[in-house]
Structures are given as C-alpha cells and as structure tokens.
C-alpha cells in the first residue's frame, strides 16, 4: 500500500499524466489553461524556495516576473534580437537585478525584508508603467514572437508550446527536488529554522540567502519570459503586487515549504478560477479568507495536511504492528519520517 505512494512513483505518474494530457483532452482551451498553470508554477517555485525553504517572504516577485517578461519582450520586439538569444539574456538580466536587489535587501531581516520587497515590487511596477519610451507604458508591448524553432522542433501550435513549458517546469522541479534533498537544501532549511543557530554552526547566511534569492528571481524571470512568449502581449499589470499575491495564494493553498505544493495549489486554483468565469474579479473574496485561515489552521497547505494525516496513519499502523508481535518492521515508518521532512 505504502509503496504506491512512494514519492518517486508519484512523480513518474504525474509526468506521464502531464505528457499525455494534450492527447487525452483534444480541447485546445484546456491545453492553453494548463500551459498557463505550468508557467505560474515555475514562478511559485521561485517564491517557495525563498519563503518556504529559507524563510524570507519576498513581496517583489511579480516585479521579477515582469522583468523577465519585459526583457524578452523589449529585446525581441524593439531590439529585434533572435528569440533564444533574447530568452537567455532576459534570464541573465533578471538574475543580475536580483543580485543587486538581494545585496541590499538582505541587510534587512524579517518584517523589514517583507516591507522592503513590497516597496521594491512597487518601484519595479511604477518604472514599467511610467517608462513609456522603453516599455510602452500602459499601452503594453504587442507582438512578442513565439519561441523560435530549435532545429526541426517548432513551437507554433498550442500543443508544442505546452510541451516546451512542461519541459521547463520539469527542469525546475528537478532542480528543486535536488536542492531540497541535498546538503545545500539542508543549509537553507537551517537558515529558515533559526538564523542564529545556522550562524553558530558555521553557515554563511548572507552568501546562502543571496544564492537562494538569485535562483528564486531566476525562476520568476523564467516564468515571466515564458509567459511573454506564450501570451504574446504584456502590460504593466503583470508587475502589479496583485500578481505576487496570486503566486502567494497558489503557494499557500498547495503548501508552503513542500515540494509538490506549488503544483497542487496552482493547478487547483487556476482551474477553479477558469471554471467560475466572472468569478475572477471577486476571487479574493474567497481566496483572501482562505489564505488567512490556512496559515492559522493548515500552515503547510493541502500537501502538508495530507502528508501529516498520512504520517499519523502510518504510525498508527506501526503501533498496531508493534503491539502484535510480527517479524520485521517495514520501511513504512522510515518513509513516513521522510515524508515529514520532504512534505
């Protein structure tokens, strides 16, 4: 029973479903929505790495999303660069800005960091909105090209675009998986848990936080660049604080500080919002209180709740097994403990 739920199997299953999805539905609209969800997920992972695993709540991530999107937009539309060159350059730009911002931002802590990034996000939005000559201001950037073909692979159809985004998402998940399950990830978690303790065991918190921040902005920028090339039109609104709040909602509902939280939360909310058209405008009537209730009652979201329920179930079974004299203790309890750590 427990074997089926093994993380590796679950991941493989998810990948298979994701790969087969466009073939199953035949509905290009669904494929479109799913592609958008994947794009958001990448950004949510950026937020998760920083807030969930390192303990720093950044409220500027929509700004970095917008930097990624606008960089690729400006480079292709205005500077006439080729797509992939612009793509890579836009990621670099996001990282460099992320590095500079991080250097200043991490002089502050906790509340100051959140307030600082909140204001920074607003500055980024304001710059995009007001700098007409570069960003076209409120008119927005129109005619961003779709990804150029790589050799024989073309990205003109919705479905090929879907696979391209899926490829990047899987890459991001793989990177996250490896980070979290490594010494490096333990280092970040140690910082989240107690920065003082982390310092006394010789962890350079500044260096690690900065690395996380840059990688986190990289994810946000990647998400933005993919968004721009998928939607082909961007306006200043993509840098607005409400986008950060959206990302945060996806993360919290799915489970902050869990590996699969961004997947669960984003899919769920994006689909719910799509199902309830016209609800979009008032979605925060529900998601606002949900956010608040979650941090009070289920601070680790759906994934956290399910995994702790699962752990309890396992330990109960284990307990019964111990009471009844049986041969060997199965690997289940070890797995359950692993579950707690990984979520």
């Amino acid at each position: 029973m427990a074997k089926i739920f093994k993380q590796r199997n679950m991941i493989s299953l998810l990948i298979v479903v994701a790969v087969l999805f466009p073939l199953i539905t035949n509905n290009t609209y669904y494929v479109h929505v799913m592609t958008l969800s994947f794009i958001w997920m990448i950004g949510v992972y950026g937020l998760n790495l920083l807030a969930g695993y390192t303990g720093y709540l950044s409220l500027a991530h929509a700004g970095f999303f917008a930097i990624g999107a606008y960089s690729i937009g400006i480079l292709t539309v205005k500077a006439g660069m080729n797509f992939w060159g612009a793509f890579i350059l836009s990621l670099l730009i996001t990282c460099v800005i992320g590095l500079v911002v991080g250097l200043i931002a991490f002089r502050t802590k906790e509340h100051f960091f959140a307030i600082y990034t909140l204001c920074l996000g607003y500055i980024l939005y304001l710059i995009i909105d007001k700098w007409d000559s570069l960003t076209e201001g409120v008119r927005g950037l129109i005619g961003i090209p779709a990804p150029a073909s790589i050799g024989p692979i073309k990205f003109e159809t919705e479905i090929s675009h879907y696979y391209l985004v899926l490829f990047f998402l899987l890459l991001v998940v793989l990177i996250m998986y490896r980070i979290i399950h490594s010494l490096t990830g333990r280092t970040y978690i140690a910082i989240r848990n107690s920065e003082d303790l982390a310092k006394t065991i010789g962890i350079s918190t500044m260096k690690n936080k900065l690395t996380v921040f840059v990688l986190s902005t990289f994810f946000a920028g990647l998400s933005g660049a993919l968004y721009a090339s998928f939607v082909r039109f961007i306006g200043p609104d993509i840098g607005a604080i409400s986008i950060t709040f959206d990302l945060l909602t996806y993360l919290l509902v799915g489970g902050i500080g869990t590996l699969s939280g961004p997947l669960v939360g984003t899919t769920l909310i994006v689909w719910l919002s799509q199902q309830l058209q016209g609800f979009q405008e008032y979605r925060m009537l529900i998601f606002g209180p949900v956010l608040t209730l979650l941090v009070i009652f289920y601070p680790r979201g759906i994934v956290g709740a399910v995994s702790s329920w699962y752990t309890k179930l396992i330990s109960k079974k284990d307990h019964q097994r111990i009471l009844r004299p049986t041969k060997v203790r199965s690997g289940a309890s070890i797995e359950a403990e692993k579950e707690v750590k990984e979520g």
Partner: peptide
C-alpha cells in the same frame, strides 16, 4: 533553537556542513 518538526538526525546532519565544500 532546534527544528522541532524534523528528526534528530536531520537536525544534526547540517552541523557538519561547515566542513564541506559542495555548493548549489
């Protein structure tokens, strides 16, 4: 200041981090 939601072993493993060199 330990991380209560994690195992003893997981709490302690990171203690040796400062003697290692691997990065992101």
């Amino acid at each position: 200041n330990l991380f209560e939601q994690s195992t003893v072993l997981d709490n302690v493993i990171v203690g040796h981090r400062l003697r290692t060199k691997s990065n992101l």
